[in-house]
């Protein structure tokens, strides 16, 4: 029963999504939206699990005064400062809730968002170091990649495009057609088709109970 019930639920849920795809929404209503709302509701219930996990993992180093315990304490404090005022009713104070002018909003705009933007901006440096490693001409394939990447990068900036136009006015169009729209798109579509088939086969294995590792069965 412990195994059969989840498999039956997975099978029926999968079948419901297939039915949503082929049934007329005019006749059956917004089944898709309804099912997705169920997922959101279940997600809401599990949110508490996340809070318990993050507090428990960080509480132990604080109690034991392990190396870097101040960072763990700061994290627990941050969770409390962001979460508690955001769930309190706005009717008690305009500082509660998540609207503009609330404590949550202030911390989000002034701390959380700039820190996330900083992380994202760091991507530029990581791209440079990864590109340096990827474009080293170690063998024929790597050299081909280096030459292609140089041409594409040059074509993407005005000075490079100007250079190509000076050589031959049709050159930028040729790069666009054959490198980006030809070889690049062909490879990407090959990967996408393979991934889509893999995803469909995995879904089928899950629906039929062949693949059960995701629920802890090996």
């Amino acid at each position: 029963m412990k195994t059969k019930l989840p498999i039956a639920i997975a099978f029926l849920s999968g079948l419901a999504m297939v039915a949503v795809f082929i049934l007329n929404p005019e006749k059956v209503g917004d089944m898709e939206g309804e099912l997705l709302q169920w997922t959101t509701v279940i997600g809401g219930f599990t949110l508490l699990l996340g809070v318990v996990s993050i507090v428990r993992v960080n509480w132990r180093p604080v109690v034991r005064r392990e190396t870097g315990w101040l960072n763990n304490a700061a994290l627990i404090l941050s969770v409390a400062v962001m979460a508690i005022p955001s769930v309190l009713p706005v009717s008690w104070s305009p500082l509660f809730g998540t609207d503009g002018g609330s404590i949550y909003d202030w911390f989000f705009i002034n701390l959380s968002a700039p820190m996330m933007a900083t992380m994202f901006a760091m991507l530029a440096f990581y791209v440079a170091s990864a590109a340096f490693r990827a474009f080293r001409a170690r063998n024929a394939e790597a050299t081909l990649l280096l030459v292609t990447a140089t041409i594409v990068m040059l074509w993407r900036v005005p000075v490079g495009e100007g250079l190509f136009v000076a050589i031959n006015p049709r050159l930028p169009n040729l790069i666009n057609t054959y490198v980006m729209g030809g070889v690049n798109v062909a490879v990407q579509r090959g990967i996408i088709i393979g991934a889509a088939l893999g995803a469909a086969a995995t879904s089928l294995r899950i629906m039929l109970g062949i693949e059960r590792t995701y629920m802890g069965k090996t």
Partner: peptide, 21 residues
């Protein structure tokens, strides 16, 4: 790449039933 991710569980399990997919 792509489909290899979805094949991984079947590949690692060595179970004929999974490999059939």
């Amino acid at each position: 790449m792509g489909e290899e991710l979805f094949a991984a569980s079947a590949y690692l399990s060595h179970e004929p039933l999974m490999l059939g997919g």
